[in-house]
């Protein structure tokens, strides 16, 4: 098996051949990574997840999981992963325990696994209640329990914290981090909760209108974030300061009566202040504005 647990090569797909959902996607998910997959509604996140799981047929490009082509190795690949696609798929006429039991039977797993996963997601007490009496959060936990059942090498989760309360979100986040750290489980998850992804992922992919506009590690994303950080300066004469700095700074603007200067590092901020003061101007305010994931996401996904 290569470096990547999930790899797609020039993967294209469209429900209608004339209107592709995405075109030539090259997704690369490293082993033991927590890969956060982001994109606005309709970007194609769930479609891509469905393709990775073989729920949709793809005509062009290749999908490789665990170093094996999905076409021709579907059963072997599916036995090594656990997944949760959109809303959890549960038999509402059965109890939570029965739902897990039937999955145990199909996967040929011992019964004691049932108790382990119920405990992991905190559903032991509600296990014998019918699923149609569960709240959305409880259903989400049960769906996650089913995904965790085979002790998968890869977890594919589509919006895993959907419907969970803040405590539930924290618990699931900690559980996923624990699985990743302790067992080296690779986790591929999509979410629209950017703040959640920021706390969880080691790698990130951003999809916009069927195009992968960013893919890399959290460190690489931080570099992008840094590139978009600015220094906001207010002086006794901003117009004069603008003319003073214009020759030295490649990008500089005057917005809302404040000077906006690209941020590189704190040393450069010191040099900037020194230059303004030497010109005889008073500095009223200097602040560094860092962009969070949301700003980066908005910038990357906007036209």
């Amino acid at each position: 098996m290569g470096r990547f647990i999930i790899e797609t090569n020039d993967l294209s797909f469209g429900y209608d051949k004339k209107v592709p959902v995405f075109d030539k996607i090259n997704l690369q998910v490293e082993a033991s990574a927590i890969y956060g997959f982001m994109g606005p509604n309709g970007a194609g996140k769930t479609t891509l997840i469905r393709l990775l799981l073989g729920l949709l047929p793809h005509e062009t490009g290749q999908i490789t999981l665990f170093g094996k082509h999905l076409a021709g190795n579907r059963i072997d690949i599916l036995s090594r992963l656990g997944c949760l696609v959109e809303q959890p798929s549960l038999y509402e006429n059965l109890t939570g325990r029965d739902n897990i039991r039937i999955n145990c039977m199909v996967r040929g797993l011992p019964k004691n696994k049932l108790h382990t996963v119920l405990k992991m997601v905190g559903l032991t007490d509600a296990a014998d209640k019918r699923v149609d009496t569960y709240s959305l959060g409880m259903k989400q936990r049960l769906g996650l329990a089913i995904a965790l059942l085979p002790e998968p090498e890869l977890l594919v989760l589509d919006e895993p914290v959907n419907g969970l309360d803040p405590t539930g979100i924290i618990e699931i986040r900690e559980l996923l981090i624990h699985l990743n750290k302790e067992y080296g489980t690779t986790i591929f998850l999509s979410s629209h909760l950017l703040s959640e992804l920021e706390k969880l992922v080691t790698h990130i992919g951003i999809l916009r209108k069927g195009e992968l506009v960013f893919q890399g590690s959290a460190v690489e994303l931080e570099a992008v974030q840094r590139q978009q950080s600015v220094v906001v300066v207010d002086t006794s004469n901003n117009q004069e300061c603008f003319l003073l700095l214009k020759n030295d700074q490649p990008v500089i603007s005057l917005k809302a009566d404040r000077l906006i200067v690209p941020y590189r590092d704190k040393m450069e901020v010191g040099e900037l202040c020194k230059k303004i003061m030497l010109a005889g101007l008073n500095i009223y305010e200097v602040k560094v504005v860092h962009h969070d994931l949301e700003d980066v996401f908005m910038k990357l996904t906007s036209n």
Partner: peptide, 13 residues
């Protein structure tokens, strides 16, 4: 009704 076909088709069967 339970939207479980997708789950059935992601089982190793």
């Amino acid at each position: 009704k339970n939207n479980t076909w997708k789950h059935v088709f992601t089982l190793p069967i």
